Structures are given as structure tokens and as C-alpha cells.
Computed example of a mutant assay.
Amino acid sequence: MADDKNGRDKQAQDAERRQQERAIATELERGDEQEPPIETDERTGLEAALEAVSFPATGTTIVATIGEYEVESAEGSYSIEALLPETDTEQFDSPAAVRVQVAAPTVAAAMKRVVEASKTLPQTEFGWTQRKAYEKTFEELNAIDADDDDDGVRSISDWIVDRIHDTERLPTSRAVRREAAALCRSNGYEVRTDEWLGI
């Protein structure tokens, strides 16, 4: 492959795609879900609904096709439309990628808001690494305040969306972690320095 801009872009895209595939495989193999996964019979129903979608598919296509389909979790029922970003740049390679995305509904709903808000920014790419860091922060908040109706996840997603609108750029993943740690500490939760939020 030529060592020019196109060649480097292709290598970066290939590396990002491989990283996404590894992340999906890891998520599917995880046994320590923080948020209860969708029930097995629901997965079967979701898989059946996803048969109407031709993959790879964008978030917009999936929402247009099965957006009203409801998935159940311990917190209640969520429509696919409430969990997947409705954008053409958000692409899912397989039904497994959709299942991973909706397995933790609180985190998925927060990421939907952030991804859709990021699309209002001119010439800004929401990279895979930054996205995974945001998701990890939401997952940690979800685990910390599991009994508090996910107020922490909502507060930080609100903060990110406000920052996007106010500064017209995505906050760094470090800034998001710092804000999440401050929120936890102000609400009486201990955050150690050796933890993800421990900045």
C-alpha cells in the first residue's frame, strides 16, 4: 500500500474496524454485565426483527425499519429508536453489533444523545476511541449509582451535550471522566485514583 494520505487513511480505517470487531466480540463474551442484559427470548425476538434489515446498516436505516421494536431490561421497556443514534454515519456491521449496543439501555440512550449532538458539529469526527471512553464512563457511572435511577448517566450526558452546544466541539474523554468523578464525589460516592473515574 502506498505511503500517502489515502494509504494512511485506509490503514487507520482498517485498524479502527478491527478494533470495533474485537470490542463487539469482547462485549458478547462478557459475563459481568453491569446492567442486566436483554432476556434470551427477547434476543431471539430482536434477532427476528433484525432479519428485516440488510447489514451493514446505518442507525437511520435500522430505526426506520424496526424503530418501534421494544426491548426489555430491568429498568423497563425501550424502543430501538430510543437506543440507536439516528444518523447515516453510525454503521452497524451485523445484528450482533446492534445487540451489543442495546444490551445496556441506559448507556445506549446516553450515547445516542451524544452521537446525535456531535453530528451538529462542522467537520468533527467522533472517533471510535473517544466513543469507547465515553461509553466506559457511562458504564462506570451506571455501576456506581445503579440504585439511583441512573441520574449520574443522565447528568453527564446532559453535560456533554451542553458542552457540544456551548463550545461547538466534543469535550475530551479526560474532561468527561473528570466531570463524572466530580459528580460522584459531590454525591457522596468514593472514587479511588486507581479506578477509571479516578482522575
Rank of each mutant, 00 (worst) to 15 (best):
T137R: 00
A97V: 03
V176N: 08
T87Y: 01
D4P: 08
T40K: 14
R43L: 11
P171R: 04
G198V: 02
Q20P: 01
E168K: 13
A110Q: 01
A109G: 07
L28T: 02
P105Q: 01
Y69L: 03
E140N: 04
L141T: 04
N187P: 06
M1Y: 13
L121Y: 03
D147G: 12
G59Q: 03
P122L: 05
R8K: 13
G188L: 02
Y134E: 06
R178Q: 15
I62E: 00
D145A: 12
E125L: 11
E21C: 07
D147Y: 14
K119P: 05
P37T: 08
M1Q: 15
A2H: 14
A103C: 07
Q34L: 14
R113S: 10
N142D: 15
D151Y: 13
G59I: 00
Y78E: 09
K136N: 12
P105E: 04
R154E: 15
S94T: 02
A15C: 08
P56L: 10
D151F: 13
E72A: 12
E125K: 11
R185G: 07
P37C: 06
S118R: 05
E195R: 08
S157N: 05
K5L: 12
T40I: 13
A25W: 04
E190D: 13
A49I: 06
L121A: 02
A104L: 07
I80T: 01
T106P: 10
